[in-house]
Design a binder for these strands. Sequence first.
DNA 1: CGTCTATTTGAATGTACTCAAAAGCGGTGG
DNA 2: CCACCGCTTTTGAGTACATTCAAATAGACG
Lengths: 191, 191
Amino acid sequence: MSFELILSNVSKHIQLDKDEATYFTSLLKTESVSRKATLLKAGELCKNISFVCEGIVRAYYQDREGKEATIMFGVADWWITDMNCFVNQLPSMMTIEAVEPSVVMHLQKSDLDLLYLKVPKFERFFRIIFQNAYIREQLRTIQNLSLTAEERYLNFNRKYPQVARQVTQKQIASYLGITPEFLSVLRKKKN
Amino acid sequence: MSFELILSNVSKHIQLDKDEATYFTSLLKTESVSRKATLLKAGELCKNISFVCEGIVRAYYQDREGKEATIMFGVADWWITDMNCFVNQLPSMMTIEAVEPSVVMHLQKSDLDLLYLKVPKFERFFRIIFQNAYIREQLRTIQNLSLTAEERYLNFNRKYPQVARQVTQKQIASYLGITPEFLSVLRKKKN
DNA sequence: CGTCTATTTGAATGTACTCAAAAGCGGTGG
DNA sequence: CCACCGCTTTTGAGTACATTCAAATAGACG
């Protein structure tokens, strides 16, 4: 598997010399997953933060009644993990599964901690990654609080048009926090 | 104003020597705000990330119809800003106002950028701060998607009991994404 | 090609909102 | 320190948005 994409992702925020790049990529474990296979199951220890090289994955939370809430979709060039359980090394609350055949690279918590020590620039890199993740999540909270389901659906299509095409309506509904039946009604109305 | 609290906050994640601490505190601007005064108004350029020393502040978004959505409450020992507009130096979407008389310390974007260069440990510090902020926001999203208003209200009281006592129900309602009238109904039912 | 799941449709229901008006409470000025 | 004014909270009736359940249809994967 090529490290081209992940190195280009890193180079958006920090510059690595050759040794640093070699060290960084030596910590990565590549995994190919088929459709519906899971990267992480709820209840398992969340060992990795993962980078999506190809395909698309989905992180979701399932409540006691079995209802799914999609936390995020991860397309190529995105980082994904159950951050809470990764950082605190707890059993995962989320399941992360491949929506279509995908290739991901994993970075273990213990290796990331080493990386921070050996190449402190990565503190900066992940500072920026987490800063952006926080911003996105905060904007989502504002939308959840102040918009109707229909407005959120239209915004989702505008913001993530490629994701909207690749995932099922059921999955979009669970991202928006509505039922698939109601999403179907919304789609008939406007579009 | 004393730098005791903010230095203790920083020392939770990184160790500063005396010169570093002096340099850091030299960048801070202390402000005392009375009840209902604003630290940041929607539309103004968001210049600062702010640390709450005393009191309690509230960040909220107001939509076109005037409906408020409370993004977060900031109590003593918390960092608060409109992260999106701070990072990208845009006009703020949020207003941040004091719920009661408060003391805050401001760190300008340009000074923070300098701080990252001069004392790179602060990359680590804010990496951890933003990581935790992201985790909290993600947990909130899960709750918004999978819980009823009543469950979210009970969780809010369990998680932030001191905030729940200091702010109005109207403000709590706008944090939960419900109307004050409906919150009143919920309170009568159970408690 | 068959099976399994996603999507659509509709009826009945529930959760939360809007509007309006009364009651309560707290901050501010006198 | 008290009283008033304005905002918060309560209460209720009517309404709207979204859910649940069920069944039919469509579509996708092996």
